[in-house]
Nucleic acid binder design. Structure first.
Length: 523
DNA sequence: TTAGGGTTAG
């Protein structure tokens, strides 16, 4: 008959078996029970062991069930939810632990840091609905949100495209820190409103380098090179020394504005004058400069740069190879791109979905010289797992040659594989709507409507940031065509996304719903 | 525990 272990014994046993999560869990389940509950720090230690071994995550539910069978599970659940290992666990598990804790009638409300960790985990998985409900639960439980809590909320609102509400939350915050300013500034930049971000920056008690770089990058993405340069001047006036991030943003902006030689001058200064206080080029600098050359069609310059990168150890990442591959493909050198693909594999750099998509798109655009069916065959050969980008390239190729049957087939396959079309996919389809073979295109489009467009998926904006010019112009073009316009409007109604289920509640209700983020902040 | 530069398709 086994005797109850003392707390120290159990902990020592767990320590000894820290490398074998299954054994540690078995010991824990075997040696503790309702009659002989473990000490919460033992639970905490076991949890850390399990969290450190992703393969043992399947065991977590049994641990949770065991804890719930104890006379007072709350300190154990709290130990689990307070653990620094929480971010490494599946969000679903953390949530069930949290919900179990909240369902215990006698348990005190979880402290704010527990909410903060969960909020952050929800944010990292873009579960804005969850951020919203956790935040409401926090208020309901009587816990007090702190700066961190509100910063996470700010980030979630910005990421959900609700910058105006984020602004209101920001304005109502009783205490802000540098992160609050940085998060809101980034939100504005990602919404294509860098001038508003500049306002946030200037409202800081003291400007800091990170927020400056955030706003600078915003201007750079918007192509506002002059604003960007003015900001750099202002930084220097304030005694802030531009760092490598600042320089990279400038180089990127100049490249995007087509001023590649200006960008290259800065790049050269960084290479040659770093003793004089300029930051040395880093991986990003090389990557950005490489794309700059490629996009400007300066393939020879790019080739020289690639050699420098090879010698300096800057051609080791799949992202860098992808830039060079994309440059070769864009400049019509698909053959050399295929060679490079072999080289990277030889060098031990694993190609990713971007890599294959670049090659596939390059092959698709080879024109009449290349049969799209052959590309499709390559895609299905098992070398790669096609995703929405791959399918969109194929679709584009088939639509371009007016092959609506093949386009339909691709759409069908996407639906079958559960691959959701995005704004690029729809734009390809929409574009073919007003080409010559209108009715065939319409059929393709109807197929897409019935098979590929579950509600809440298609945003008439780009995936990344700012306005989507393609989607917008397609929109306007379609609004001038009667029957197809109706179809598109039907779609836009179905696919509007946003924070939670906004589409189903009245504006008034939504307003009341939003007020919760602002009103409590007076306390 | 939260903010910055950078890979694919329209």
């Amino acid at each position: 008959m086994s005797t109850s272990p003392t707390a120290a014994n159990l902990l020592a046993l767990l320590r000894r078996n820290a490398a074998s999560p299954t054994v540690a869990l078995r010991l824990f389940l075997h040696l503790t029970s309702a009659a002989s509950p473990p000490a919460p720090h033992s639970t905490s230690f076991l949890f850390r062991i399990l969290a450190a071994h992703p393969s043992s995550h399947a065991l977590l539910p049994s641990l949770l069930r065991h804890l719930l069978s104890l006379p007072d599970p709350s300190p154990h659940l709290l130990a689990l939810l307070s653990s620094s290992s929480l971010p490494r666990l599946p969000l679903g598990f953390s949530l069930s632990a949290f919900r179990s804790l909240r369902a215990l009638p006698s348990a005190p409300p979880p402290p704010t840091p527990v909410y903060n960790r969960l909020l952050l985990a929800a944010l990292q998985e873009s579960r804005f609905d969850l951020v919203e409900s956790l935040y409401k639960d926090l208020l309901l439980s009587g816990a007090a949100p702190d700066v961190f809590t509100r910063n996470i909320l700010l980030q979630a609102l910005c990421a959900a495209g609700r910058v105006e509400l984020a602004r209101k939350v920001f304005d109502a915050m009783p205490v802000r820190n540098e992160f609050s300013f940085g998060i809101l500034a980034r939100g504005y930049c990602r919404a294509g409103r860098s001038m508003d971000a500049l306002g946030v920056l200037y409202s800081m008690p003291r400007m800091n380098l990170v927020v400056c770089n955030t706003v600078l990058a915003g201007f750079c993405r918007e192509g506002q090179v002059d604003e960007a340069e003015r900001l750099v001047e202002r930084m220097r006036d304030q005694g802030l020394t531009p760092n490598v991030v600042t320089f990279n943003a400038r180089i990127s902006a100049l490249c995007k504005a087509g001023r590649v030689l200006d960008a290259y001058r800065i790049f050269n200064d960084m290479q040659e004058k770093w003793e004089r206080g300029l930051p040395r080029p880093d991986q990003v600098t090389f990557d950005v400069m490489l794309s700059g050359f490629c996009e400007a069609g300066m393939v020879d310059e790019a080739r020289v740069l690639v050699d420098i990168m090879r010698c300096g150890g800057f051609l080791r990442r799949v992202e860098s190879y992808n830039r060079w591959l994309s440059g070769l493909v864009r400049n019509g050198m698909v053959g050399e791109a295929q060679e490079l693909l072999r080289e990277m594999v030889h060098e031990g750099v694993q190609p990713n979905s971007y890599t294959y998509n670049i090659i596939v798109d390059g092959l698709c655009k080879e024109g009449k010289a290349f049969d799209v069916r052959k590309v499709e065959h390559f895609v299905k050969s098992g070398v790669m797992t096609p995703d929405v980008v791959t399918y969109t390239s194929l679709l584009h190729a088939y639509c371009s040659e007016g092959n609506s049957a093949a386009a339909n087939r691709i759409l069908g396959e996407m639906a079958q594989k559960g691959c959701t079309p995005n704004s690029f996919t729809y734009n390809v389809l929409l574009q073919s709507l007003w080409k010559a073979d209108f009715s065939a295109a319409q059929r393709v489009f109807d197929t897409s409507l019935s098979t590929c467009a579950p509600s809440g998926q298609f945003k008439p904006r780009s995936q990344k940031h700012g306005q989507d010019k393609y989607a917008e112009s397609n929109w306007h073009a379609l609004l001038h065509r009667d029957d197809s316009a109706c179809t598109v409007l039907k779609i836009t109604k179905r696919v509007k996304t946003g924070w939670g289920q906004r589409g189903n509640i009245s504006e008034n209700k939504q307003q009341q719903n939003d007020d919760i983020y602002v009103l409590e902040n007076t306390g």
